[in-house]
């Protein structure tokens, strides 16, 4: 107990694990890590394509079949049946996303800031489900989310990343108006 009380007063601990980092520090770290990821795995960092695989695995678990879906087997399809057949544990994207979740948990525990938050009202649930569905669907038909299409696109000098940025900004403006007027 005394150890933890002392730790609370330790400047280095507070600086590294508790105080929020600046936006610039965050941006530099993200850039460095995505370079490491690209050179280690051969493909740019992505998040949301993996969720399509998770959905397909869940659908297969209840007896569904996605073999004929364009997304997984059409010409130039973004998804792949071989990735699905390889399974959950052999999927690099799965490991990355689990890593993000466990990393976030670890950092909040190290900062002693873990808390299970209450759901305040039904509107929060509606906003979360509606927003999540639109973002997930939009990311799939755009062949990427703000990580794969925007961050990966721009950092590999692709024009598509900038096009994505313009329309994501438009979407963010519309989303903010909806949030302020209907969901808070």
């Amino acid at each position: 107990m005394e150890f933890f009380n002392k730790l609370r007063e330790n400047d280095l601990y507070n600086k590294w694990f508790r105080a929020p980092y600046s936006y610039v520090t965050g941006a530099v770290l993200l850039s460095l890590f995505q370079i490491v990821m690209l050179s280690a795995t051969g493909s740019p960092w992505g998040v949301s394509a993996t969720f399509a695989n998770w959905g397909a695995w869940l659908y297969q678990m209840v007896g569904g079949s996605v073999e004929k879906w364009y997304y997984f087997s059409g010409p130039g399809a973004p998804g792949s049946m071989s990735a699905l057949e390889a399974g959950f544990m052999s999927n690099a994207g799965t490991m990355l996303n689990l890593g993000v979740i466990f990393g976030a948990l670890l950092s909040t525990l190290l900062a002693s800031q873990f808390k299970i938050k209450k759901i305040k009202n039904k509107r929060q649930i509606v906003a979360a489900v509606l927003g999540g569905t639109m973002m997930g669907y939009g990311a799939r038909i755009a062949y990427g989310c703000n990580i794969g299409a925007l961050f990966g696109g721009i950092s590999s000098l692709s024009l598509s990343g900038w096009v994505f940025a313009i329309f994501m900004f438009v979407g963010a403006v519309i989303g903010s108006k909806l949030l302020v007027n209907y969901f808070m």
């Binding site: 938050k117 209450k118 759901i119 305040k120 929060q124 903010s176 949030l179 302020v180 808070m184």
Partner: peptide
């Protein structure tokens, strides 16, 4: 603003 995520606390 407990249970509210960004940007709701700031807007409120």
């Amino acid at each position: 603003c407990l249970g509210e995520a960004c940007p709701v606390p700031l807007v409120k």
